[in-house]
Amino acid sequence: MANSFSDSSDSDTPTSIHDSASTHDNGHGDVLIEDSGAGANNPSPGQRFTRLLRVAGPTTVIMVLILLSMIFIGIIEPYLAIADYKNIASGPRRSAPTIQWLFGTDNLGRSVFARVLEGIRLTFLLSVTAVVAAGIVGSFIGMAAAWYRGIFDTFIARMADVLFAFPSLIFGLIISAIIGPGSFAAIVAIFFIVLPTMVRVVRGAAIGVVNRDFVVAAQISGASTARILFKHIFPNVASVTVVQTAYLLSIGMIIESSLSFLGLGVQPPASSLGALLREGSAFLNIAPWMVLAPGAVLTLAIFCVNYVGDAARSIIEPAQPRPLE
């Protein structure tokens, strides 16, 4: 599944569809520009929070709560009594859902509910690790490319093109075959699949900033490159990075579960949601709960991430300023 739609899934801002910031960088600042510490008014944290809630709306709040509770359950799952029911033979084979076995049991007599809880943890853990790593590395490369331009920039752009054009799941399969299937391979695969998008977006945003007066001023005053990148440029691309990370997180979750579905992600008995779907698909007709439970939870998790990501964008980047004509 090629799912790096990322820089185009930016649904409410059609102008950022395609190499957004670079194609539409008309030198007048499409991107929200704000030099560090130059905030106009500073409302109190309490005011900010109430404003945030108002802007976000009740549905977003619900989604955030679902997401947080999923992550919370994922974190505490290993310490819950129910974790014992992940043992083989703790119940009958392929029992349909009952009060005792909420999501039924699998072919080895394990509680599907307990395994789904573990799946939530693993799916989030792997995709968050990979996407955050890609976010950090990608921002750095993107900013450096925007700053240095020339050969380095061209090289980075071409590399990103190549990774972008490589069918992403096949790429993941090859990575997994090279370093051996498992969590680490899944993280590496997700990292490289989402990296080019991150680099492109950050580079695009950074290009709009490097020629701004305050950056030039900093340069003239003799600030080091590292200082300029992190002190002056990064704050201006940070919002783009955060929004993009949220989007890529949902893509990371899809890649992780796809790899696990093909048997190349986490190794048994560890159960990411994709791995559970893989195991369950062999029993679809006789034990549909083995597929329906992890499938529904996975979809819900990705939906929450997408929804919250959408909301985050509309809060951080309110309506794209119209180009000055």
Binding site: N87, I88, A89, L108, P268, P269
Partner: peptide
């Protein structure tokens, strides 16, 4: 699928004598 199920049962058996089997399913 069957080999993977076999390995998981073995992992549980070995855990009873204090061994931690780390499974790696490869082509």
């Amino acid at each position: 699928d069957t080999l993977s199920a076999v390995a998981q049962v073995l992992k549980q058996s070995a855990a009873k004598i204090g061994l931690d089997l780390e499974l790696e399913v490869v082509d």
